[in-house]
Nucleic acid binder design. Structure first.
Length: 383
DNA sequence: AATCCGGGGAC
DNA sequence: GTCCCAGGATT
């Protein structure tokens, strides 16, 4: 399909370039398959600079397959706090437990076994097999598709599954004998450092001479990628409920369900605002508390919590891949005699009254961390 | 094939 | 503001 000369040139030049120019990254300092695995999961949709501190902390806290297998899930989630895509953490621990039980703690080295692990797809399987075990398997991610689409002038939409399959076939053919790990990492390194999305640095590229995309003046137009749909807007009311009496100095948090968005993460109670539109919100004193009280009161009543008066505290925003949250945070109290210490009616088990110090024990999405930190900071300044 | 699932850095 | 990143699971 593509000329043997163009392919051989690419493989040889890229491999030698990588060995001379590779960055000194934490997970490149060992061939520990467990550490390689952790790094690959963390690096999914996440930049190297973001991952580095998380990787150090995670490996330090869970140094072996056995240690992670035996850890409480809450601690694993807390170690992942802020990284996003939290199912990665839960799938990783689930898969690590399987490796501990089924393979005696040794990460398997066959395609079938690695691919079968939870959270390990075509890319990650290839990455673990090639980097940790030097097996000649392709590891095709966004970087690799960008590099290959430019060098070989491939105009297929990289969002299509069929294109990834095509790229995997090509990438596998390019792997030099006995150098799968270095070559695959070189492909990604080139994409990260030279063949970058916006303005590729062709003049420093080790394979520019035979790059078809460059020759055609197409390097900036590739890869072809269908645009994603914009996230749908959602307006929400958030309740920052301050404890009274025996709970003075604490705020009320709750844990999300085990499935879906931000699964098992902790958060402040919140409710969808009726009419997700952008109706005239912020005045100088903030939005009207009345509709917020109505929505939050109904929401909290379902958990047996009564809501006292609200006053506006701050706005907040958060964008997921598919949802854009516009939040208005209100301060209030739980106006509910049944929750006094002497009452027999307990707080539902997925709720907690916590102090600022106890925040450290719970994993929060970043948007709620920001709100809580702003709150505790302001309260400290006021006292 | 389309949708769900976070967060942040570069521009 | 826009893009997109060392993707995978689910439907």
């Amino acid at each position: 399909m593509y000329s043997t000369e163009q392919k051989q040139y690419f493989s040889e030049k890229l491999l030698s370039w990588y060995r001379r120019h590779k960055r000194d990254l934490p997970w490149r300092r060992s061939r520990n398959p467990y550490h390689i695995w952790i790094s690959e999961i963390m690096l999914q949709q996440t930049r190297v600079e973001t991952v580095i501190p998380y990787f150090h902390r995670f490996v330090d806290k869970f140094p072996t397959v056995e240690a992670l297998a035996e850890a409480p899930e809450d601690e694993v989630l807390k170690a992942w706090e802020g990284l996003g895509y939290y199912s990665r953490a839960r799938n990783l621990q689930s898969a690590v437990r399987e490796v501990q039980e089924r393979y005696g703690g040794v990460v398997p080295d066959t395609k079938e076994e690695v691919f079968a692990l939870k959270g390990v797809g075509p890319y990650t399987a290839g990455a673990i097999l090639s980097i940790a075990y030097n097996k000649p398997e392709p590891a095709v991610d966004g970087n690799v598709m960008r590099v290959l689409s430019r060098y070989f002038l491939i105009e297929e939409d990289i969002m299509k599954g069929s294109t990834r399959v095509l790229m995997e076939k090509l990438a596998k053919e390019l792997i030099p004998e006995g150098a799968a790990g270095d070559f695959n990492q070189g492909l990604m390194e080139l994409g990260a450092m030279v063949c970058t999305p916006k303005s590729p640095h062709c003049l420093t590229c080790p394979v520019m001479l035979h790059c078809s995309g460059r020759a055609a003046g197409m390097e900036a137009e590739l890869p072809v990628k269908k645009k994603a749909k914009p996230p749908r807007p959602e307006s929400r009311y958030v309740a920052l409920l301050e404890g009274t009496g025996g709970q003075a100095g604490r705020v009320l948090i709750r844990q999300r369900p085990a499935e879906g968005l931000l699964a098992r993460m902790w958060e402040l109670p919140h409710a969808l605002a009726p009419g997700t539109g952008t109706d005239g919100r912020d005045t100088a004193q903030g939005p009207d508390p009345a509709p917020a009280h109505e929505a939050l009161a109904e929401h909290l009543d379902a958990d047996g919590l009564g809501l006292g008066e609200l006053r506006w505290f701050m706005p907040a925003e958060h964008t997921f891949s598919h949802i854009h949250w516009e939040l208005d945070v209100f301060l209030g109290t739980v106006d509910n005699p049944s929750l006094l210490p002497e009452s027999s009616a307990p707080l539902p088990s997925h709720y907690r009254w916590i102090t600022r110090e106890e925040m450290e024990q719970y994993a929060f999405p970043n948007v709620f961390l920001r709100i809580l930190k702003a709150y505790f900071k302001e309260r400290e300044g006021a006292s």
